[in-house]
Amino acid sequence: MALTEETLADLALSRSSLDRVALERRRPDILTELLDDARTRVVEIRGDRVQVEPSSTTGDGTPAGDDAGDDAGDRLRLVLRAPEAADSGRLGLHLGRDTDGTAYVGVVTPVADGDTGRDPAEDGWLTLRQAGEALASRDAGIFTTALALANWHASHTFCPRCGAPTHPVQAGWVRRCEREGSEHYPRTDPAVIMSVVDPDERLLLGRGAHWPEGRFSVLAGFVEPGESFEAAVAREVAEEVGVTVDEVRYLGNQPWPFPSSVMIGFEATTRGTELTIDPVEMAEARWVSREEYRDLLRSGTIRTPSGISIAKRIIEHWLGQTVESVVPAGTPTGF
């Protein structure tokens, strides 16, 4: 798919800047070496959260350097620390190296280890949905990759071939069956997400069958085996709302580790506007003009997807402006 001036740039979760140094993972003792090196930077993952702080300070309270990047999303930074003795007994993930050669390792800590009965956010422990847009490129990539790997490990502790336990190898990027030695690799489930625009340039919005009133987004769905991305766009639109698309154009993509997807964004056009909704998938669907969408946002009748979602960027691409520029400052718009 060729990149064009229409391609969405700087998507919130597509900003990783580390070299993944995949060949290093083959060294059996690489994690031990890294966790024995005080220069290694460690990020803890507790459930679906990591600890963050204002970008003006580092984990030890000193002023931040330039290593986290300098881009629009730099209001927060990850709390990174040197390795500690307990890390050797935790699930370790070699996430890569920066341009200075500094290694970054994720360690998965049981939630109970840090459970003090307080709201985790009070101590800076945020989810990727909460923090992703405010992180600079390096840290957004670290969080996204670490969460995707942690999610995969949590759901693949047993071999899909024989049911025996598996254990992590290759610095957390492979799991090996303890009975028959088969190796299993992190999975990523591709999903398409698309705006559908009619001849009057109206956008098709849908509300999922289990979504609350007012929660609308563009359509999306998983790619099926043996299917191209463009074919998946056409099939999903036809299945969910009964509309046939005429043309499909690529807009961009980003990882979506909730738990293990990558979202591939498209813009589709159609000459048909009659909707036949699948009630299993959709509660309702509607066409909106740009001015109607602005009015619905201002009135609070609809909510748009969150800032880290490619769905929000796709809607703004069609709208020609950011959602935040439509409504008064401080007005809640996302979900």
Score class of each variant (00 low, 15 high):
148 A>M: 08
71 D>Q: 06
211 W>K: 08
46 R>H: 10
249 R>D: 09
106 G>A: 12
217 S>K: 00
209 A>L: 06
123 D>F: 00
39 R>G: 09
47 G>D: 04
195 S>T: 15
19 D>M: 06
221 G>H: 06
303 R>E: 00
295 D>C: 01
271 R>G: 15
242 G>T: 11
36 D>I: 00
197 V>E: 12
12 A>F: 01
69 G>L: 07
9 A>S: 14
291 E>A: 15
61 G>L: 07
227 E>D: 05
217 S>A: 15
164 A>I: 08
11 L>P: 04
51 Q>E: 11
110 P>N: 04
275 L>H: 07
204 L>H: 13
304 T>P: 00
22 A>K: 08
284 E>P: 02
64 A>T: 13
334 G>S: 15
126 L>D: 02
307 G>R: 14
141 G>P: 07
295 D>E: 15
14 S>N: 15
250 Y>T: 05
44 E>I: 01
219 L>R: 03
201 E>D: 15
59 G>K: 01
259 P>F: 03
94 H>E: 04
134 A>P: 00
226 G>P: 04
106 G>I: 04
227 E>M: 12
327 V>I: 14
186 P>D: 12
291 E>S: 15
63 P>K: 03
271 R>S: 15
120 P>Q: 03
27 R>H: 12
155 S>D: 14
166 T>A: 09
107 V>W: 03
26 R>I: 07
255 P>Q: 07
138 R>K: 14
84 E>A: 13
331 T>N: 04
24 E>V: 06
264 I>R: 02
245 V>S: 06
244 T>I: 05
101 G>C: 09
77 R>S: 11
105 V>D: 05
231 A>L: 03
97 R>Y: 02
220 A>Y: 14
316 E>V: 10
267 E>L: 13
197 V>F: 11
170 Q>D: 15
83 P>H: 03
289 S>M: 10
266 F>Q: 08
70 D>S: 14
202 R>G: 06
213 E>D: 15
97 R>K: 13
148 A>D: 04
244 T>K: 10
141 G>L: 04
32 T>K: 08
207 R>Q: 14
34 L>G: 01
67 D>P: 00
225 P>S: 10
84 E>S: 09
163 G>A: 12
92 G>C: 04
128 L>F: 06
81 R>L: 01
206 G>F: 02
218 V>N: 10
219 L>Y: 02
